[in-house]
Amino acid sequence: MAAKFQTWWQGLRYRGGGTMVAWLLHRIGGLAMVIFVGMHVFASFLTQQFGSGFGTTLNIIYQSPYFQAPLYFFVIFHALNGFRIILLDTFPKLLEYQREVTWLQWMVFIPLYGLVVFFIIAGIVSGE
């Protein structure tokens, strides 16, 4: 009998190129943001309503550079990639130049995220 032998791993191994990676990062980032933001709201709620230590613990995790660095990565990437997709979907003519548009996206992303990383590191160094 014919059957589907399909696994997540096979899909992830497909060599789709940079745009497939961008899509994966976009989706992971979207989900991650829901968790990040949810955690932040939840922690503030706990702290405000019960003054609970658990809320404070969550906020300490949330505000640590190890948490903030990936958070900013996903937020900035998701926003820029989202704008690229909105742009391409609105003006299908641009889809022919998707390579150029993708390069442009990275050219905006790298300095922007670089700046964020700079401030995070500066914060650590100055003991903020």
Binding site: G16, G17, T19, M20, Q98
Partner: peptide, 9 residues
């Protein structure tokens, strides 16, 4: 379609 481009490639 999520504009992934695998098809075009």
């Amino acid at each position: 379609c999520h504009t992934i481009f695998n098809c075009t490639l």
